[in-house]
């Protein structure tokens, strides 16, 4: 199973496609419809969006590899149980270790533990890819999808924070030493910090996305 022993080069065109495909064409959030709950819950601000994106990249890469390694000995009838155990095990382990050695980081992350475990994007990729493919392509698929998921989160987080709180990464951009838009009558849009706003922002991203990629158009 060692990828080094395979004849195929590590970054063959096929493997690179695994990495690139989910970024735009087969994006988890806008096309595959996976991982929405967390996209709504954490994107009020840019910072948590970035934190959870990084966490998902790590968890997804490794759980895909683990699943792929044991794919041939896993009975299909209990595969869901096996997948979830792997994911939950990894996330809980990471959380426990962080709590012991990097308490400040864990305070940031422990909020998301439940969200990462039930993030359907992770299990979705295990079920759709890792269970039938070798470890190295599975790893690339996991990382690629996690990036595709991450950048949407960051974009949504950016707009919601900018329009809802008037800040970017907690730095105020509406009221600065040089200009103050509030004096001109500008107001933050309180709607943007409520969860439904995330749905509407993602809806607009899909709109833009699909006007660029006509092949994704649906008909209902």
């Amino acid at each position: 199973m060692d990828p080094m022993n395979e004849k195929e080069p590590l970054f063959s065109p096929k493997n690179v496609r695994l990495l690139k495909q989910p970024l735009v064409k087969d994006n988890p959030i806008t096309v595959q419809v996976l991982g929405i709950c967390s996209a709504l819950a954490v994107t009020v601000k840019l910072e948590p969006s970035v934190v959870i994106s990084l966490a998902v990249i790590v968890v997804m890469g490794f759980s895909n590899v683990m699943m792929s390694i044991i794919r041939n000995i896993t009975p299909p009838r209990i595969r869901i149980l096996v997948m979830l155990t792997i994911i939950a095990f990894m996330v809980v382990m990471v959380d426990q270790v962080l709590k012991a050695y990097m308490y400040d980081v864990s305070r940031q992350l422990s909020v998301f533990v439940g969200l990462i475990i039930t993030n359907c994007i992770i299990m979705g990729r295990l079920e759709a890819f890792a269970i039938a493919n070798k470890p190295w392509p599975s790893f690339l698929d996991g990382v690629g999808n996690a990036f595709g998921y991450g950048w949407i989160l960051v974009v949504v987080g950016f707009f919601r924070e900018l329009l809802g709180s008037g800040t970017i990464w907690d730095i105020n951009v509406i009221e600065t030493p040089w200009w103050n838009l509030y004096e001109l009558g500008y107001q933050n849009n309180g709607l943007m910090i409520l969860p439904p706003a995330a749905l509407i922002v993602v809806g607009v991203i899909i709109w833009v996305h699909r006007s660029k990629h006509k092949e994704l158009l649906e008909d209902n």
Partner: peptide, 10 residues
Amino acid sequence: HQGETPGLGA
């Protein structure tokens, strides 16, 4: 808090 919504309750 343990896990309030980031940016809102948090």
